[in-house]
Amino acid sequence: MTTASSHIAPAPGPAVLMVLGSCASLQIGAALAARLFPVTGSAGATLLRLGLAAGVLLAVARPAVRSWRRHQWRAVLLLGAALAGMNGFFYAALARIPLGPAVTIEFLGPLTLAAVLSRRARDYGWVLLAAAGVAVFGFADGGATLDPVGVALVLAAAVFWALYILASTHAGAAIAGQGGLAVAMAFGALVLLPGGVTGAEKAVTSPHLLLIALGTGLLASVIPYSLELSALRRLPQRAFGILLSLEPAVAALAGWLLLAQPLTPAAASAVVLVVLASIGSTAFA
């Protein structure tokens, strides 16, 4: 007989903290990865990020892949492809445009997903408020001067970010623990191998660059994706997608503190709009 307690949903508080921690870790890792670009290129940095992160997670999780069924493998491989596309296109864009605008434009992916998944007018209102903040933050301070190729690349990353959210949900439901994520990262690294192996080899021979690459893998992949996968088990996709509206704010702060990128009054105003939308969506989710 099923008890009443089995129907109680997990408290959303810890999941919200997981998403916030993921945002902070991801942006610090992205700023750290920028130090690899002059030597490895964006493709090499992306390969190092996913490859080293996969090695760490595989050692910790030790997934029982021999017992996986076809639907579990399909979910993991789809997640790996989404990871490869999202990270590959984003780092290629980050080599051309600043961190704040890049994250802001990329956020259009999960923002659009949140709008599609929503069925209440109030939810659309929070999405529209966040969209206004994203638009101001991305374009009020000279966004027209952004490299058009960089913008195109980050828009492609936005599509893969939305796919990553969906794929993470399916993989998290199909496989318990972090084993699915570990194998997905390894598959994503294999997808990126042809384009990134030449640049990655340059970092492998340098202990200093290898240490930076390992830090990037931990901060930009292992920590945030583990937190997000856990959060997705506790939050609806719609609430998770809207919560990520904090990402541009965290990116602006990371760019200001770590990369000396200016945080103008217009950008600060946009951050306020995005934070208000995030608070509202969290309170009424």
Rank of each mutant, 00 (worst) to 15 (best):
H7A: 15
Y124P: 05
P262D: 07
G51C: 13
Y225N: 06
A158L: 02
A249W: 04
V151N: 09
G109L: 00
Q237W: 00
E201I: 14
A162M: 09
V151E: 09
Q27S: 07
L244N: 12
S168W: 02
H71I: 12
A173Y: 04
I242T: 13
L257I: 14
A4E: 13
S67I: 05
L166E: 01
G150E: 03
L20T: 12
L246C: 15
I242N: 10
P265K: 04
L111T: 11
R49C: 05
L166S: 09
I212W: 11
S6C: 10
A162L: 06
R35K: 13
H170F: 10
P14W: 05
R35A: 15
R122G: 02
W68N: 00
F37E: 08
G88M: 03
G21K: 09
L47D: 00
A11G: 10
A54T: 07
H208K: 11
P207Q: 05
A162H: 03
S278C: 14
I242Q: 14
Q261V: 12
S245V: 05
T169A: 15
L219R: 04
V76L: 07
L214R: 07
Q261K: 11
A61I: 08
T104P: 11
L227P: 08
S22N: 12
W256S: 14
L246P: 02
M185D: 12
G199Y: 02
V204G: 00
M1H: 13
V56S: 11
Q178S: 13
G150C: 08
F37K: 04
A184E: 03
L77Y: 03
G29T: 00
A132D: 02
T169Q: 15
V272Y: 08
G172Y: 01
T3P: 09
G172L: 01
S226Y: 02
A102C: 10
A45P: 12
A270L: 05
S221G: 01
A102R: 05
V271I: 14
S206H: 07
A15Q: 04
H170R: 15
F240L: 05
A200S: 03
L32R: 08
A203L: 01
V159C: 13
A53F: 06
F139Y: 14
L235F: 06
A189M: 07
E247G: 09
G142I: 03
P101A: 03
L166N: 08
I242V: 15
W68K: 00
A239G: 08
F284Y: 14
F160H: 03
L79A: 10
V116F: 13
R96D: 00
L111S: 02
I8N: 11
T205K: 10
Y225H: 12
A266K: 01
S226K: 01
R66K: 12
A11F: 04
A152K: 10
R66A: 14
Y225E: 04
L276F: 13
V159S: 06
M86W: 07
I279W: 12
D147A: 03
A283Y: 10
A130D: 05
L190A: 14
P265I: 03
W256E: 02
S168Q: 12
A53I: 08
I223H: 05
H208N: 12
T205V: 13
T46N: 10
G217H: 01
G217Y: 02
M18R: 10
A135I: 14
S281D: 04
T46L: 08
T169G: 15
A173V: 03
G177S: 03
